[in-house]
């Protein structure tokens, strides 16, 4: 066993010269940094779009709720429960309800398009 161990230690290959290796490594790392920068920027954009979509949805939803609260339908005020009133109000203002839904859909569409670009 000692013989083979000695043989292996004595015939250890020499370490190759640094030569072009570090230069090539540096060039590859520069490329990696470039790609990393682009990916980070895209991710940041994606997160920003998500936040914008959420804020837009929240603001429009709040505005619509306030609108429903401050402008109730007068004719059925006394006959229905609070939940039913909300349903009736929603029915009354269904055209207006389409606006925040559409806004959210557009924001979501923009966000998804952005995500798709990121993946590509």
């Amino acid at each position: 066993m000692k013989d083979i161990e000695q043989y292996l230690r004595q015939n250890k290959p020499e370490t190759p010269d640094e030569g072009q290796f570090i230069i090539e490594t540096n060039a590859r790392l520069s490329n990696v940094e470039g790609i990393k920068g682009t990916v980070d920027a895209e991710r940041h954009r994606g997160r920003l779009m998500l936040v914008i979509a959420l804020v837009a949805g929240l603001v429009i939803g709040c505005l619509f709720t306030l609108f429903v609260v401050f402008f109730p339908v007068p004719s059925i005020e006394t006959e229905l429960s609070a939940f039913s009133k909300a349903i009736v109000s929603l029915k009354e203002w269904e055209a207006l309800l389409l606006v925040p839904v559409a806004a959210c859909a557009i924001a979501l569409g923009v966000f998804l398009m952005n995500r798709k670009k990121e993946v590509l």
Partner: peptide, 17 residues
């Protein structure tokens, strides 16, 4: 990156061997 390269410089020969 500088530290990474200096660490790599120290052991690249052994790694390649």
């Amino acid at each position: 990156r500088e530290r990474f390269i200096s660490e790599v410089r120290a052991c690249q020969g052994q790694l390649r061997r």
